[in-house]
Design a binder for these strands. Structure first.
Lengths: 169, 169
DNA sequence: GCTAACGTTGAACATAAGTTCAATGTCAAG
DNA sequence: CTTGACATTGAACTTATGTTCAACGTTAGC
C-alpha cells in the first residue's frame, strides 16, 4: 500500500503521515524501487491508535515512548502507569475548569447585583475590586495537560484565506 | 511609575507588559523625556484584569475586544454575552474531558479483562480492535476553547538549559 | 508522447503568548 | 568617572503539530 491509500484508509493526510515518520513516531518504512513508501496493512491500525491516543490527551511524544515496535508486545506496566496518570491529569483539569466556571458565574451575578443607588462607573469599580481580590493563586496543573485539549481541534486547520491577520511583530 | 515597578506590582515581567502594548492590548503609554514608559496607578488594575481573564480562559484577542479604554465604561451587553459564551465553552470542554476519562477507564478495564486462556499478543489484538471500533467521531469543540487550558501553564516557561532537544526538522 | 494524478524532498509558514538577546541609552550612588 | 541597575528597540527564538510550497521524479491512461 502506498501513502495515498494509507491516507484514505486512516483518514489522515499524507503530509501528516510523513511528518509522523520524520519525528520518529513511525519507524522508517520500506520503499519501492522508485522511492515510494510502501506500508503493510497494519499501518492503518497503528495510525488509528495514534489518533485515538491523541484524542485521549496524549502528546505525540508520549505516544512515541509508549508505542512498541511490535504491536503485540506492549510494555504492560508502563502503559498502565501512563493511562492511570493521564486519568489523574484529566481529573486535575476538570477541577480547574469547574473552578473557572463558578468564577465566571459569580462574576455575572456580581455584575448584575448593582445596588440601585450606585451608578455604572462605581459598580464597575466595585466588581473589579471584588474580582481582583479573590485571587486564589490558581490551581497548578502541569503543562503537559494542555495537550488534552488540543487533540481534536488543531487538526482541522483554518484555510489560509480566512486566517486572522497577525499582528506585526 | 516606570515599567519595572509596574512589573513588580502586577507580578508580570516587563517584557510581557511591553508585549501587551505591542499587540494593542494596552494603549500606547506616556513617556518620560528619556523615552521611559510612565504608567498611572490604574495600570496595575488593568494588568490584573487581563491575567484574571486569561485564567478564566479568554484569549488576549478576546480581552482586547472586551476591554474598554475607560475602565469605568464597559460595554455591558457585549461583556455579558462573552461571559455567557465562555461558560458554555467551559461546559463543552467538561463534557469532552468526562468522555476522555471514561474512555481511558474503560480501556484499563478492558486490558485487565484478559481471558485466562488468551495470550498477551491475542489480548493486545482484542483490546486494539475494541478500541478502534468505538470511534464516536469525537465531540466537536471549537478551537477557541483550547485556550481555556493554556492560561496558567505556558506562563512559567522552562529554562533553556533543561529544554527537551527538538527533533531536527 | 502528453497529461493528470501521485510520489519525493527540504524549507518555510502557521498559531498563541510570550522570552531572550544584542546593541545601546540613562541614571543614581560611590 | 566608573559601576550596576534599569530602560529602550527590533529580531529571533520557543512549543506542538502539522500544512503548504516549490521543484522535481514516476506512472497510468489516452
Amino acid at each position: 500500500m502506498r501513502i495515498g491509500e494509507l491516507a484514505r484508509l486512516s483518514g489522515l493526510t499524507p503530509s501528516r503521515i510523513r511528518f509522523y515518520e520524520r519525528i520518529g513516531l513511525l519507524k522508517t518504512v520500506d520503499r519501492q524501487s522508485n522511492g515510494y513508501r510502501t506500508y503493510p496493512q497494519q499501518a492503518v491500525m497503528i495510525l488509528g491508535l495514534v489518533t485515538t491516543a491523541q484524542r485521549a490527551g496524549f502528546t505525540l511524544d508520549e505516544v512515541r515512548t509508549l508505542l512498541p515496535s511490535d504491536l503485540t508486545h506492549w510494555d504492560h506496566a508502563t502503559l498502565m502507569d501512563a493511562l492511570t496518570r493521564k486519568i489523574a491529569d484529566i481529573e486535575a483539569l476538570q477541577a480547574r475548569l469547574a473552578q473557572s466556571r463558578v468564577h465566571l458565574l459569580r462574576l455575572i451575578e456580581d455584575i448584575q447585583a448593582r445596588p440601585n443607588d450606585m451608578d455604572c462607573a462605581a459598580n464597575a469599580h466595585r466588581v473589579l475590586t471584588n474580582m481582583l481580590a479573590e485571587h486564589p493563586k490558581a490551581l497548578d496543573v502541569t503543562s503537559d495537560d494542555i495537550r488534552l485539549l488540543d487533540a481534536t481541534d488543531r487538526r482541522q486547520s483554518v484555510s489560509p484565506a480566512r486566517r486572522k491577520k497577525t499582528v506585526s511583530r
